[in-house]
Amino acid sequence: MGKVKSLRLPEGARVGSYRIVRPLGRGWEGEVYAVKEVPTEAERAMKLISRENVDSARHVTHTAWFFEQVASSRSVARYYHMGQWFLDDNEGLFYLVFERLNGPILKYYLADVGKKRLLTETHALHLLHRIAEAMGRVHVLGFAVGDSHGENILITGDAEDPRPMFCDLDPGEPDKPNKDFQRDMRELVTLARQVLRITHTSSRTKDALRHLRTAAKRPVSPETVMALGEQMAAW
């Protein structure tokens, strides 16, 4: 299944209490736009989801519920509310409104710092530590992240103090929220490879990656990644 077809909403188009500013990206379920709330002009991010891309309305409400459950982790974009935008039928589109996060997507952040050779070994390990820390804060609430890849993580903050934020999650299914901690651990290993491969390879980085791979082969509890994050801080 590929990415959804763009809605091509023009700047200024009205969706509920929001006006479209510009598109931010598309995924396999919906399209995200930067919007401004009317009349406050507050900046938000809106994810528009077609009914044909979800099993039922329950899936969307479950996603909203899931974001609300993990809000206190401070690792995800803050969820505000959901709604339905009717077009010329009785189905329309669902939308979820989130905090507008500012910062590059991890995939492009790594490409940029790699090209400029700005990511030192210490900075790379610190960034990896912060990603694990953000994931661990979700885990200790009893939920998994899912889809932890380079296009679903934004890097806020600055180069000295990057703060990774998950801008999208795999919420699981209604009545069965995502608690696949083992999958998250495997995805953390993949992220570690992506982060560490653009810096100088040393025994330090090799040991860090080896440690993560070993941990991913063992049973993972909600506290595992948080404990790993604490260990990474010492690397």
Rank of each mutant, 00 (worst) to 15 (best):
T205H: 03
G12F: 14
R210W: 04
D170K: 04
E160K: 15
T201K: 07
T40S: 15
A45H: 09
V60R: 05
R130M: 14
V70R: 08
F67I: 10
S6D: 06
S73E: 03
A234E: 09
F67L: 08
R14Q: 15
I153S: 07
D207G: 08
S75M: 04
R100M: 10
E173C: 03
A132H: 00
K5D: 15
M135E: 15
R130H: 09
V76M: 09
A57H: 03
T190C: 00
L24K: 10
H126C: 07
L127C: 02
V35N: 01
L93Y: 15
L48V: 15
R130E: 15
A215C: 02
H123R: 15
L196Q: 01
G83L: 14
Y95L: 11
R204E: 04
R186C: 00
A215I: 14
M226S: 01
D88C: 02
Q231H: 08
K176M: 00
R19W: 06
T120H: 06
P104E: 13
E99M: 11
H81C: 02
L48P: 13
Q84Y: 02
S6V: 07
K179W: 05
A233R: 14
T199P: 00
D168T: 01
V35S: 00
A34S: 15
N90I: 03
P23Q: 07
T122N: 10
F98A: 12
V140P: 09
S6C: 09
S202E: 06
S50L: 07
W65P: 10
L128A: 12
V225T: 08
W85H: 09
L191I: 01
A215P: 08
E133Q: 11
R130F: 10
A227R: 13
R78W: 03
V76G: 02
V35P: 01
I198E: 03
S17I: 11
D184E: 00
R213G: 01
M1H: 14
T199D: 01
F166R: 13
L154G: 12
T199Q: 00
R78V: 05
R218D: 04
V189W: 01
D180R: 11
V54N: 08
E11V: 11
R117Q: 15
S203P: 07
G25D: 01
L141S: 10
N152L: 10
S17R: 14
D55G: 12
E151N: 12
S203H: 04
G150F: 09
A64I: 15
E91M: 02
L228W: 03
S203Q: 12
M232W: 13
P104K: 04
R26P: 03
M226I: 06
E37Q: 10
F94V: 05
F67Q: 03
K47R: 09
L96Y: 06
Y18L: 14
Q69Y: 11
Y80W: 11
V60D: 08
Q182S: 08
T122S: 12
L188N: 02
D89A: 00
A216S: 07
R210I: 06
H123N: 07
E43Q: 11
A227T: 13
M46N: 06
Y80C: 05
V4T: 12
R213D: 02
P164H: 13
V54C: 09
V220L: 05
L110K: 05
G136P: 09
E91T: 05
E187G: 00
S75Q: 06
I155M: 13
V76A: 09
A34H: 11
F98Y: 15
V195H: 02
D88L: 09
L48E: 13
R204V: 08
H62Q: 12
Y108F: 12
A227F: 01
A216H: 00
P171W: 07
